[in-house]
């Protein structure tokens, strides 16, 4: 199983990196957000606006990139690649995990790029905080990608996948407080926001980047991310293996 996962990961990763077009456009929106929206935010939040905004953009990236991962498997299903792989002895779990691993690694690459662009604008982060922050993105991205694959294989309709996924991902993004801090929200909105895992991700990321490693916020964020990943991967693998018995 680990060997098959590794083989499929390498194959998928090479394909993804070969398709530079998709890769660049995947990261373009968050970077544009940073460039066109970030400076404006400075007027409201003062000089440390980048410290608030860069973690938000990273969460935006983590929602958009793995959240639409399922699109790729529908493409493979349409071309018969998925069925071909299913007749090989490769473990069913590896067929899913190889892809999830690719999405996670690609996301980490994109995140580093976003941080580099942020640094050019004056965003500063301690090395330990950076590493903790990137580690925090891993379970969020992996869990979301697994859910996205499960959803795509249940839906099986390429033309419906993107609109339906956006209907889920965009509210998650707004509720996470990634773009504007939830501290300004009315009570009910704050409560709804606290029911979504990405809210904790954003806050933990901000804590890590600010060097507040001992804070409860960081611990809570890591715990929520890991619980989310375990639940999502369980649902993902169940759906995947059931559809692929």
């Amino acid at each position: 199983m680990p060997r098959d996962t590794w083989l499929l990961f390498r194959h998928q990763l090479r394909l993804t990196l070969g398709g530079w077009f998709g890769l660049v456009f995947g990261v373009l929106q968050p970077v544009l957000n940073l460039v066109l929206f970030g400076p404006l935010l400075g007027t409201y939040l003062g000089h440390d606006s980048w410290q608030v905004f860069v973690p938000g953009v990273l969460i935006q990236l983590s929602l958009l990139s793995p959240g639409l991962a399922g699109f790729g498997i529908l493409f493979d299903a349409r071309f018969g690649v998925l069925e071909r792989l299913r007749v090989t002895p490769a473990s069913r779990l590896a067929l899913l995990l190889g892809r999830v691993l690719t999405n996670t690694v690609v996301l980490l690459g994109q995140a580093v790029l976003v941080i580099a662009v942020g640094a050019a604008f004056g965003f500063r982060v301690p090395v330990a905080g950076l590493l903790i922050g990137l580690a925090l993105l891993v379970p969020l991205a992996a869990g979301l990608a697994a859910l996205s694959y499960a959803f795509a294989l249940t839906l099986r309709r390429q033309e419906l996948f993107a609109p339906l996924s956006s209907t889920f991902v965009v509210p998650m993004l707004l509720l996470s407080g990634a773009l504007l801090p939830m501290s300004a929200a009315p009570g009910w909105l704050d409560a709804v926001s606290r029911a979504t895992p990405f809210r904790y991700g954003v806050e933990a990321l901000r804590a890590a980047f600010a060097g507040r490693y001992a804070s409860g916020t960081l611990t809570a964020g890591l715990a929520v991310s890991v619980v989310f990943a375990v639940a999502a991967l369980t649902i993902g693998t169940r759906t995947f293996t059931r559809r692929h018995s």
């Binding site: 398709g19 071309f79 018969g80 690649v81 069925e83 071909r84 002895p89």
Partner: peptide
């Protein structure tokens, strides 16, 4: 209906398949 990814090369698909077996 076929079994290959149009953006792969023939060798990429064959090598993956051979390794999985």
């Amino acid at each position: 209906g076929g079994s290959t990814n149009p953006s792969c090369t023939a060798l990429q698909e064959l090598v993956l398949q051979a390794r999985l077996y």
